[in-house]
Design a binder for these strands. Structure first.
Lengths: 198, 198
DNA sequence: TACGATACGGAGCATCGCTCCGTTTTGCAA
DNA sequence: TTGCAAAACGGAGCGATGCTCCGTATCGTA
């Protein structure tokens, strides 16, 4: 639905400057995002790239689209998820979740942006949901089927929760997102038949 | 440290218009926050109140300070927390956490603002930490002492986590923050001596 | 009632995301 | 090689927002 450029006639027919500039923009944006976070002003990316604002917005209709494009490869890697060697489905799930969290935390402001209500940022949210939700859903179901974890947790809720827990790691240095994610994972694990929380 | 107005000479010595306008501003802001969320432009609050921008900023140096002032009463209520009749310390904790979450969710955008990295919004974060952290810490320790919950979770992390989990309830209607908070609480409950997660 | 201290009001500044349109570049065809 | 139309570029400019500044109005006291 989103990218309809690959099917008809591959990227070759685009004007050479277009192709060149797109790469320049992606590189510049990546550099700026590392330096100043994903909230960096578009003007700064324009300056870094040496191109004009108009060019940026012709290539990426919205700032969020640029963010999506820059991180596409890493999202792909998470989505691909060559199932690692782990003992239990729960452990597989746990490792993937931490990879996801690491990804979000590493990119300054990505977690915040993903849940932003700012207009235009739905595309970022959608990208994550479309690409990663199926993977997480599969891992969750596998773990639940194996009896490792509860089956009453929706992948969508869980994914947003993980993302949310990553918010603020940079703003509040004392906040340990990792611990809280582990806590959430612990809550997911099927508890022994204790009496509490019916 | 924050409010040094009550100790020396109570509010009586302020000019009458100052007192009147402060109340007008608080009422107007409260109305606007309900209608348009805590992200509403300051100009809108000025319009609602019939006062000028300058007046707002003289009373509340920053938008965040206005937000803090508007919700002070409700934060006080949470901080007071007349311990309810509940069976276990864990249940007491659980109820308080849900009250806190309800508070955040009810005020449009409050959770987001609380973790915003926007300049000036630290005061909001600080207000929450100063007022509510002691309460939560007490509840956590009580529950842990009673053997209901793990003792290795810091109140600060937990509070930010709860707040974070509330983010997005309005932007993403399908997201069930309540469930995820319950999941976090479940993770807090002392798990039976199973082998997983050493 | 007069006057100094205090508070008010809103135009204005800087910073955003994003648009619009005159100018430049590109690639095909004569 | 050169002409030319389609396509892409660039950056001034728009509207919105948080916040400041200072001339003007108000308050309370002598």
């Amino acid at each position: 639905m989103s990218t309809a450029n690959t099917p008809p006639a591959p990227a070759g027919r685009k004007r050479s400057d277009v192709r060149r500039n797109e790469q320049i923009l992606l590189d510049a944006a990546a550099a700026v995002f590392v330096r100043a976070g994903v909230d960096a002003p578009v003007r700064e990316i324009a300056a870094e790239s040496g191109l004009g604002m108009g060019t940026i917005y012709r290539h990426f209709p919205t700032r969020a689209d640029l963010v999506v494009a820059v991180f596409r490869h890493q999202v792909d890697a998470l989505a691909a998820h060559a199932a690692p060697a782990a003992d239990t489905p729960y452990e597989v799930l746990r490792q993937w979740v931490h990879q996801f969290a690491d990804f979000l935390v590493t990119k300054h402001g990505l977690a915040e942006a993903m849940h932003s209500d700012q207009a235009g940022f739905e595309s970022l949210h959608n990208e994550f949901v479309e690409r990663l939700l199926p993977v997480l859903d599969r891992l969750l179901k596998a773990s639940a089927s194996a009896g490792c974890t509860r089956a009453d947790v929706r992948a969508y809720d869980f994914m947003l929760a993980i993302g949310n827990l990553c918010i603020g790691v940079e703003t509040f240095p004392d906040y340990r997102a990792r611990h809280m994610i582990d806590l959430l994972l612990a809550g997911l694990a099927r508890t022994a038949p204790g009496a509490e929380r019916q």
